[in-house]
Amino acid sequence: MTNVTMTINGRSVSGTVEGRTLLSTFIRETAGATGTHVGCDTAQCGACTVHVNGASVKSCNMFAMEADGADVTTIEGMANADGSLGTIQQAFQDHHGLQCGFCTPGMVMTAAALLKENPTPTEGEVREYLSGNLCRCTGYHNIVKAIMAASGQDVSSIAAE
């Protein structure tokens, strides 16, 4: 057992972990931030996506010890300081970018990573960037639309609502 400390959404969190403890487990069970969802646990669905030192990663495919000392942002860190929805979250609500909501934390974290790299992506670039995130409800159209809207672009010509 090893002691690790990381910053999660600006709060320092310490805990004792085994070598095999996944970052997703640490976030959910030690930090209590259960907004990070574990969907497939095989690194395919992307529901567990978080940012580690600014880079998006699948937290079920990284060990907690590997994030020792890191700065981690999860979906709980995406809201505004007053608790209201952040821009990307609000766009998902406005454009019905979710149905059951299970994949949404990963989708929002991925969208945030994309918009940091590429503030005005094309629809094609959004779809390409979402290649590691699966949604089984919406067929992706409204997710893409929400991300385009969050980037401040006109989305009136994009299919589906």
């Binding site: 690194a43 992307g46 880079a55 998006s56 699948k58 495919n61 990284m62 991925t110 990573a113 590691g132």
Partner: peptide
């Protein structure tokens, strides 16, 4: 390769 998250690790 893979997807953006895979490429970061």
């Amino acid at each position: 390769i893979g997807d953006p998250h895979v490429r970061n690790r």
